[in-house]
């Protein structure tokens, strides 16, 4: 049996068109051996959650640089709850003031990676967080 691979959705919610970060992260995760689905721009929270469930994803990575992070993190996490899919991890990055990070974490975001974060930090976090998630599933 081959080793189980981490499955990640990299998502651009809303109208923000800055996709350099999302694409670089998607590529880095893929190069690190994960299975990555990049949604493209202009995704509604409903579409993102639907994709994540359909693709049996372990995690959703949200990239926002428009300042609308509170709305989108909140809505995506809420929809995951409604769909009984809260086991899917949510993390993200972009232009997000540090003051807002505790709020996003309280909503249920696992990690927020600000500008300048090496992709290796993101990869390490995902590897360990997803493995903990798998351990919970089999427990």
């Amino acid at each position: 049996m081959s080793e189980r691979k981490v499955r990640v959705i990299v998502a651009k919610p809303g109208l923000d068109g800055h996709d350099r970060g999302a694409k670089v992260v998607a590529r880095a995760l893929r190069d690190a051996g994960m299975e990555v689905i990049y949604t493209g721009l202009r995704q509604t929270p409903e579409q993102i959650v639907q994709t994540a469930i359909q693709e049996d994803a372990d995690a959703i990575g949200i990239s926002i640089l428009s300042g609308a992070h509170e709305y989108y993190f909140g809505r995506i996490i809420e929809l995951l709850k409604e769909r009984k899919a809260s086991d899917i991890l949510v993390f993200g990055g972009g232009v997000i003031p540090e003051d807002d990070v505790p709020k996003l974490k309280a909503m249920g975001a696992g990690a927020i990676f600000g500008p300048g974060t090496p992709t290796s930090v993101c990869i390490d976090w995902l590897n360990s967080a997803v493995r903990e998630k798998w351990a919970r599933e089999t427990a």
Partner: peptide, 10 residues
């Protein structure tokens, strides 16, 4: 509906 959360932001 697509404007939600984005009005006046950037």
């Amino acid at each position: 509906p697509m404007a939600q959360g984005e009005v006046g932001k950037v």
